[in-house]
Design a protein around this nucleic acid. Structure first.
Length: 433
RNA sequence: UCCUGCGUAGCUCAACUGGCAGAGCGGGUGACUGUUAAUCACUAGGUUGUAGGUUCGAGUCCUACCGCAGGAGCCA
């Protein structure tokens, strides 16, 4: 058993009799007519059942149908200007596959906690369907970009023996009697892989046990992390902006219908073209100091969510902020040779207040300096033996970055909250479904 | 962890200063041959988050707890 006809390509079948399989999205009745909205995962189409055409037995079957019941409809595909998709089905036959119990999600308003409790059903709704289709497009574009530019996919492990960045809280698990942690970045492994393959990337889930309750945080999210040997900070920024331009422009091209359904202001995305502005941390602080709300900012700190919004509001496309104070950045960042207090790092801030979507930079490639940094951060040196080895056997300048998939999806879709950008979100207060 | 707010029908919400527990949607029954979140009529549906307290009387006031939402810190 296999479907051959989907609503997405219904225009190919105009004037023909087809069988569609799907679920009842909604039904209206009018005397001896039944209007069935059939959803098949690719789109929704209206099917008209007339008592005079199908006879009493098939017609009465319609009245057994409940919202989200599964069914097969056979009928003639006809053009109709009243239809949102231009076509409808005049039904000859209707087969019920399963009568659904009373469906909890009605076509009217619901609150997010209720919908999240029913996330496994909420996925069937049109807006969620659009968001996850765009997520699929973005992930597909990310992979295409790296695959087409000479990068090799190298999967990083999920279980790790120690923190990549000492500051963040990790999820701890029992690993045959010893401790293991869920990864918060594949980067260290990508550095090793870059020395073997030149240009590599990994794409996988990432875990943060921070008790963050904001619209920008998940405890489990997906990150794509490229790493390049023989690459400095400028080369890193070149790749980051070309990469971002590619995924945004490809999504615009292939997912116009979904973006329209989400009422996304497309013009904001059309601006996402190279070159992106590149400003230093010091210049970003100047922007803050000139703004009304940012004057309280203390030089030397990392930017908070509100600070990032002010900085990004000064530009009409993503802005790359480089050379933060080394003290607020991770131990593996290389210091700027022209100003040792700064790190050769870059954060890409999305427009419209969506915050940091990319973080990256040039890595420390000197053995002695890196060892010193590990010690200064109070990290266990033994756990980083293998990582230090990379600096012992043909060390080279190298750089990379990580892009947060969900924050990117939220930005491109124009969503208020990150939780709808992933099929089954994991939040501080949500592990179900 | 801290700050703020919210818990009333399946869902979304009302209920004045403490005075009979309400509506819309959804469900059920019926009407309707072009409906677009269809419409119309009828109908069922409640331990007001939990436990105490104040009061003649608590959805409403007080205390504690539980759950949830937003924000801060931290980060992608």
């Amino acid at each position: 058993m296999r479907n051959t006809t989907y609503i997405r390509e219904i225009e190919k079948y105009e004037g023909q009799v087809v069988t569609l399989s799907g679920w009842l999205y909604n039904m209206r009745s009018s005397g001896k007519l039944r209007f069935i909205l059939l959803r098949d995962g690719t789109n929704v189409i209206q099917a008209i059942v007339s008592r005079n055409d199908v006879g009493d037995e098939i017609f009465n079957r319609c009245d057994l149908l409940t919202q989200e019941s599964s069914l097969k409809i056979t009928g003639l595909v006809v053009k109709d200007v009243r239809s949102p998709i231009g076509y409808e089905i005049q039904v000859n036959d209707l087969e019920i596959v399963h009568i659904a119990e009373e469906y909890p999600i009605s076509p009217k308003e619901h609150g997010t906690p209720f919908l999240m409790d029913h996330r496994h059903l909420w996925l069937r709704s049109s807006l969620q369907h659009a968001i996850l289709n765009i997520r699929h497009e973005i992930i597909s574009a990310c992979r295409s970009y790296f695959d087409n530019n000479g990068f090799t996919l190298i999967d990083a492990p999920i279980f790790t023996p120690a923190a990549c960045e000492g500051t963040t809280t990790l999820f701890e698990t029992d690993y045959f009697g010893s401790k293991a942690y869920l990864t918060q970045s594949g980067q260290l492994y990508m550095e090793a892989a870059a020395m073997a393959f030149g240009k590599v990337y990994c794409f996988g889930p990432t875990f943060r046990a921070e008790k963050s309750k904001t619209r920008r945080h998940l405890t489990e999210f997906w990150m794509i992390e490229p790493e390049m040997a023989f690459c400095d900070l400028n080369g890193d920024m070149d790749i980051a902006e070309e990469f971002l331009e590619y995924i945004v422009q490809r999504t615009l091209k292939n997912r116009e219908a979904e973006l329209k359904l989400l009422e996304r202001d497309i013009s904001k995305l059309q601006n996402v073209k190279r070159p992106f502005p590149r400003i230093s941390y010091d210049e970003a602080v100047d922007i803050l100091k000139k703004s009304a709300e940012g004057q309280a900012f203390e030089y030397g700190n990392d930017f908070g969510g509100g600070d990032e919004t002010i900085i990004s509001a000064a530009f009409d496309r993503p802005v790359m902020v480089h050379r933060y104070p080394a003290d607020v950045k991770a131990f593996y960042m290389k210091n700027d040779p022209e100003d040792a207090s700064k790190a050769l790092c870059v954060d890409v801030l999305a427009p419209e207040g969506y915050g940091e979507i990319i973080g990256g930079g040039q890595r420390e490639d000197d053995y002695a300096v890196l060892l010193d940094k590990i010690k200064k951060h109070n990290l266990p040196v033994e756990a980083f033996d293998w990582y230090l080895d990379i600096r012992k056997y043909g060390s080279v300048p190298h750089a990379g970055f990580g892009l947060g998939i969900e924050r990117s999806v939220a930005w491109i879709c124009g969503l208020q909250h990150i939780r709808e950008t992933i099929p089954f979100p994991r939040l501080m207060h949500r592990l179900q479904p």
